[in-house]
Computed example of a mutant assay.
Amino acid sequence: MNPRKTEFVLTLIAGITGVIAGFTGIMGGGLMTAALSSSELTSEAGIYGSDVDAIVSASGIMVVVASFALIIGVVLFVFAFLIKKNAKVFGILTLILGVVGFFLVGLLWIVPGILAIIAGIMCLARKVPDFY
């Protein structure tokens, strides 16, 4: 029996949903940048000049930030397999990455963030018997 199976599964799901959240943020920012770069669309919406430039640059920043969230999702996926080796260290790192993701992509990070925080707390709080 695997003593850290729950933490493994939670971190694995957090990593997979984190990758999905990162891709969603990248696609959303990219689509917004592409749509607002169209002069026909912005003139129909009544957005002109510096407003368009500000929104396009904010969309570009969203793509960059979502790329970091994608990287965090991949790292959480890798941490799922390393939790069995050293639960305390990777539990702390999982907990930190779960919190950092909220600052990057906000609401897109609800599911992976909560799962990563729960897995990190379980790694730190749960004592595994020595006979495993």
Results as ranks from 00 to 15, higher is better:
Ala69Asp: 01
Met1Tyr: 12
Leu12Ile: 10
Ile26Pro: 02
Met62Ala: 14
Ile61Asn: 12
Val111Lys: 07
Gly113Ser: 07
Leu10Ala: 03
Leu82Pro: 06
Gly46Phe: 02
Ser39Phe: 10
Gly73Asn: 03
Phe103Asn: 07
Thr11Ile: 10
Ile117Tyr: 08
Phe102Leu: 01
Asn2Tyr: 13
Phe131His: 14
Asp130Leu: 13
Val74Gln: 00
Val99His: 05
Ser37Ala: 09
Ile20Thr: 09
Ala125Val: 15
Glu44Asn: 14
Ile121Glu: 06
Gly113Ile: 05
Thr11Pro: 08
Leu41Met: 12
Met32Lys: 12
Val78Met: 07
Val56Pro: 05
Thr94Cys: 09
Gly30Phe: 06
Val100Glu: 06
Met62Asn: 12
Ala87Val: 13
Ser67Lys: 00
Val111Thr: 10
Val52Glu: 08
Val9Phe: 11
Leu10Ile: 02
Phe77Gly: 13
Val56Phe: 04
Ala119Ser: 15
Asp130Ala: 15
Ile110Lys: 00
Ser43Val: 08
Val52Trp: 03
Val111Asn: 06
Gly49Pro: 02
Phe8Pro: 06
Asn2Arg: 14
Thr33Trp: 13
Ser50Met: 14
Val75Cys: 02
Lys85Phe: 12
Leu31Pro: 05
Leu115Glu: 07
Ile114Ser: 07
Val19Ala: 10
Met122Cys: 09
Gly106Trp: 06
Leu31Met: 15
Gly60Asp: 05
Ala80Thr: 04
Gly25Phe: 00
Met122Tyr: 13
Gly25Thr: 01
Ala54Phe: 14
Phe23Ser: 11
Ile72Lys: 01
Ile118Gly: 08
Ile13Glu: 07
Ile20Gly: 06
Asp130Cys: 08
Ser43Pro: 03
Gly91His: 08
Thr42Phe: 00
Val99Asn: 04
Ile20Leu: 15
Val74Pro: 03
Ile71Ser: 03
Val75Phe: 08
Phe102Ile: 00
Val75Tyr: 04
Leu76Cys: 02
Ile13Val: 15
Phe81Ile: 07
Gly18Ser: 03
Leu124Tyr: 06
Val56His: 07
Ser50Trp: 13
Asp53Pro: 08
Gly91Ile: 05
Leu93Gly: 03
Leu70Cys: 02
Ile83Trp: 07
Leu95Cys: 09
Thr33Leu: 15
Lys85Ile: 14
Leu70Glu: 01
Gly106Asn: 06
Pro3Trp: 10
Ala87Asp: 14
Met62Gly: 14
Ile16Glu: 07
Ile92Asn: 06
Thr24Ile: 13
Ile96Cys: 00
Glu40Pro: 07
Gly25Ser: 04
Ile55Phe: 15
Val105Tyr: 04
Glu40Asn: 14
Ile96Lys: 04
Phe8Ile: 11
Ile121Asn: 08
Leu95Gln: 08
Tyr132Thr: 10
Gly46Tyr: 03
Ile20Val: 15
Val111His: 07
Ser38Gly: 05
Ala21Val: 00
Leu82Phe: 14
Leu107Val: 15
Ser59Cys: 10
Val9Ser: 11
Thr24Phe: 13
Gly28Ile: 10
Met1Trp: 11
Val111Arg: 06
Ala116Leu: 03
Met32Pro: 09
Leu41Ala: 10
Cys123Tyr: 01
Ala54Gly: 15
Ile47Arg: 02
Gly25Pro: 01
Thr17Val: 05
Gly91Met: 09
Ile71Asn: 01
Arg126Ala: 09
Cys123Arg: 00
Leu41Asp: 04
Gly25Asp: 02
Glu44Ser: 15
Ala34Ser: 13
Ile16Lys: 04
Val89Asn: 13
Ser43Trp: 05
Asn2Asp: 14
Lys88Tyr: 12
Val111Cys: 09
Ala119Trp: 08
Asp51Gly: 14
Pro112Gln: 06
Val64His: 08
